[in-house]
Design a binder for these strands. Structure first.
Lengths: 202, 202
DNA sequence: AATAAATCACAACAGTTGTTGTGTAGTAAA
DNA sequence: TTTACTACACAACAACTGTTGTGATTTATT
């Protein structure tokens, strides 16, 4: 996030900001990030540019806010922590929730993909992705460590390497769906993920 | 490709077009696709907009040409066909060539990523990606079939599923490098790829 | 040498962009 | 009721965009 110096937003103001970002998302998905202008977002809102400029200092702040929501949405899925719920099946289910299998997650992936490309040549945006990506790798590696400690993974594997491979697999599948939605139903994801974990079975 | 109705280009003309596209690439990597204007590309060429408009009907044609070069560059690596050269080690080496391990392949990945995001909300660009993606899946699946027939892969695996997983892995690793170049040296790629093929060993 | 074509430079065009400022209703606090 | 603030609408700004046309210079062809 880059916009933390704001006075103190009321609940209504926060909700209105969320409205603006939601419309920004819709325009991004429909027209692309670079064509998501303040005017087109305002039109999507059913109002004028005054709304957007009132709730966001400038477009950069709006985009960073929208990007932040993408990242947060990606990290929203909670993986099981209790040992009783810790099964490979449950883990696969969580990854399936992250992958584009529902309307929400599909929007997430489209916007995520659009922003990733948009970040090329924009170091401050790429830095945001970098930070979140590093955190993800660390977190997933920790998850694999837990799985391994629980005896659900082959003891010889490396947590970090597995985490990198898993995340790459997820990103690759997500993008493949964005490029080719019809060819990537949930069933394909499930098969690929099952293979991934089967290969690492103890 | 979308620009096939051109009279008949001389060798010099083709070379000049390649120059323009190369400069377009540089600007895309430096500033992003959406900021790669005809004027900035001309400046990178050391000339004026007349050059660009002379060799390309409009910007759309230039972008499609640039995208076509990305896709062709990605498919340029030749996998072994002779049975004597057919080893897992050689295959891994080919994938490593595709991954961002050299200056050229790194540029490829940056531009590819930029275009992928740019294609969100642009159906005709996305359709190009879709076509090339489908071809890739089919080709890689054929490659896996050959490997399996040669006894280098576990006989129980599915060619198509493996191809999808492999390509997703490659795309995910490539993007991870674009986001975080310092953390993805060749060694990481090699490890992840080795794990992938080890898991499918006969 | 005459003619045609290729290769640009340059300027003008209309359209779109983010930003800024001004004005105006409505609402809450004093 | 006065005052202040929120929540917009609206207009004007300069900067930038792709496109088009004109003209000059060079190169190739006849």
């Amino acid at each position: 996030m880059g916009q933390s110096e704001m006075r103190q937003l009321s609940e209504n103001q926060l909700a209105r900001r969320a409205d603006v970002v939601e419309c920004a998302w819709r325009v991004i998905i429909r027209d692309g990030v670079d064509r998501a202008s303040i005017r087109s977002i305002a039109q999507e809102l059913g109002g004028t540019t005054g709304i957007v400029t009132h709730y966001f200092r400038d477009k950069d702040e709006l985009l960073l806010f929208a990007l932040d929501r993408v990242i947060k949405a990606m990290q929203a899925v909670e993986f099981p922590e209790k040992k009783s719920e810790l099964t490979i099946k449950a883990i696969v289910g969580c990854w399936l929730k992250i992958l584009p299998t529902s309307k929400e997650s599909r929007d997430n992936w489209r916007v995520w993909t659009a922003f990733t490309g948009y970040a090329v040549g924009r170091e401050h945006l790429m830095a945001e992705y970098r930070k979140s990506h590093n955190e993800q790798v660390a977190e997933v590696a920790k998850g694999f460590a837990t799985l391994r400690a629980a005896g659900l993974l082959h003891p010889k594997g490396n947590d970090r390497d597995d985490a990198i491979a898993c995340l790459a697999l997820i990103d690759g599948l997500g993008i493949a769906w964005v490029i080719n939605p019809d060819r990537y139903p949930e069933k394909v994801f499930r098969t690929v993920l099952s293979d991934f974990f089967d290969a690492r079975a103890p």
